[in-house]
C-alpha cells in the first residue's frame, strides 16, 4: 500500500501547488504595472543623483557612459555645479512610461546643455541596468517604451 499511495499523494500535491501558484501569478499580474512604475522611479532617481554627484565632483571620467557629463564639467571649469535632483515624476500607461527628472543647479551654463547632458547620461547608464534595453536610440523598460525628459527648474 505504502509506496504507490505516497507517489499518488505527491502527484496530487504537485497539481495543487500548480493551481495555487497559478492563482498567485494571476493576482500578482494586476499589481505588476504599478511595480514597474516604482522600479523605474527608483532606478531613475538613483541614476540622476549619480549624475549630479559627478557634476558636483568636477572630475572627468573618460568612458562612454560619462562622456555626456564630461563636456558640462569642462565648460564649468571643473568646479561644482551645485546640482541636485528636486524630483522624479513617472506616469505609466499600458504601452509606455512617461518619466521626467527635475534637477536644479547654480551656474551660468545653458539649461538645455545641462539637461541634454544629464538625459544622455541617464539613457547610457540605464541601458546597462537589468530590465532596460536601448533600441534605435529609444529606451525600453520591460517592454514599455520610456519617454524620458530632464527639466531644469
Amino acid at each position: 500500500m505504502s509506496l504507490k499511495l505516497r507517489g499518488q499523494t505527491s502527484l496530487e500535491l504537485m497539481f495543487l501547488f500548480m493551481v495555487i501558484v497559478g492563482g498567485v501569478l494571476l493576482v500578482a499580474k494586476i499589481y505588476y504595472p504599478s511595480d514597474t512604475g516604482v522600479s523605474i522611479t527608483y532606478q531613475l532617481k538613483s541614476a540622476a543623483q549619480d549624475a549630479c554627484t559627478f557634476l558636483n565632483e568636477g572630475v572627468v571620467v573618460n568612458d562612454t557612459v560619462h562622456a555626456p557629463l564630461d563636456r558640462v564639467i569642462e565648460l564649468n571649469n571643473y568646479s561644482s555645479l551645485n546640482c541636485a535632483v528636486s524630483g522624479v515624476s513617472v506616469n505609466t500607461t499600458s504601452t509606455s512610461i512617461n518619466a521626467v527628472v527635475y534637477i536644479t543647479y547654480s551656474s551660468r551654463l545653458n539649461a538645455t546643455l545641462v539637461s541634454g547632458a544629464v538625459r544622455d547620461y541617464l539613457v547610457a547608464r540605464l541601458s546597462r541596468v537589468n530590465g532596460f534595453a536601448l533600441r534605435n536610440g529609444v529606451l525600453y523598460f520591460r517592454g514599455y517604451l520610456v519617454s524620458l525628459g530632464v527639466v531644469v527648474k
Partner: peptide, 21 residues
C-alpha cells in the same frame, strides 16, 4: 548579486573621482 554589482560599479567610480578631486 546582479543588482548589488550594478550599484557597486558606479559607486567605485564615484569614490575614485572624489579621491582625485
Amino acid at each position: 548579486v546582479g543588482w548589488g554589482m550594478n550599484q557597486a560599479g558606479e559607486t567605485t567610480t564615484m569614490g575614485k573621482a572624489a579621491q582625485l578631486k
